[in-house]
């Protein structure tokens, strides 16, 4: 991302943002509520237009062409609740192009929904929907997966299941993952690099080793960098 900027009226939500995600990274994208994370992800996914700046994904700057390398979920996966899990994937596969039935079935097995694929999505738990969401994001065999707060609302077992799935995807599909989350402990154990934004600006970027001070957790580091702690108290 280079100089990415977006304003709503006079309120600048993302300001001149520059981020680099290397191939193979699991990149944690962090920031307080209202920092501009979701807006940034929406711009990368082509859902909203930027006022300035550009996004290049594996060398592709053209938005439609770039999306061939991209899969993502923003603010929770959304489905047609009256259709079955497999029918939802078939519908989304049509918009990706070149997705075979074998690919759909293998993704359903990967996210452990093979046995429930013929049930309507409205009968799925939140965790199952998240896993189906990951499956739909992988339909076009993307190189980069964007996940916006994927662990929101999941119980501890669901969080662990999703984390394991992301790690497995990185190994099996050679994916680069760009993930935002408020569950900093999970991000700390998952991500190879982290970027932190506040008020639409980048305040820090690097590996855990580069960002953390002696004995500091990612949560402490996050609060220190975003000004969330003042004199040992959370503001």
């Amino acid at each position: 991302m280079r100089g990415l900027t977006r304003a709503y009226g006079s309120h600048v939500v993302v300001r001149d943002l520059e981020l680099d995600v290397d191939p193979g990274d699991i990149y944690g994208f962090l920031g307080p509520n209202g920092a501009g994370k979701t807006t940034t992800m929406r711009m990368v996914l082509g859902l909203i237009h930027s006022d300035a700046g550009s996004v290049s994904i594996f060398g592709e700057a053209d938005p439609v062409a770039a999306r061939r390398h991209l899969g993502g979920i923003v603010e929770g996966p959304r489905f047609y609740p009256y259709l079955t899990g497999v029918a939802n994937l078939r519908v989304f596969a049509a918009y990706s192009g070149g997705v075979t039935e074998e690919r759909i079935q293998s993704l359903l097995e990967m996210v452990r929904l093979g046995e429930r694929q013929t049930d309507p999505v409205k009968t799925y738990s939140l965790g199952m929907r998240q896993r189906l969401g990951v499956a739909q994001a992988l339909l076009g065999a993307p190189k980069l997966l964007l996940l916006d707060e994927p662990m929101n609302g999941l119980d501890p077992a669901g969080v662990r299941e999703l984390r394991d799935l992301i790690l497995r995807l990185k190994e099996e599909e050679q994916l680069t993952v760009f993930i935002s989350s408020h569950i900093l402990k999970e991000i700390e154990g998952l991500c190879t690099r982290v970027g932190i934004i506040q008020d639409g600006r980048k305040v820090a970027e690097g590996s855990a080793d580069e960002l953390l001070e002696d004995g500091e957790s990612l949560e402490d580091c996050f609060l220190r960098l975003t000004g969330g702690v003042h004199g040992g108290q959370i503001r």
Partner: peptide, 14 residues
């Protein structure tokens, strides 16, 4: 209203 339009627009289709 379902939010599925966003799931369509993230794909490489004009």
């Amino acid at each position: 209203s379902l939010g599925t339009m966003a799931m369509i627009f993230v794909r490489p289709v004009a």
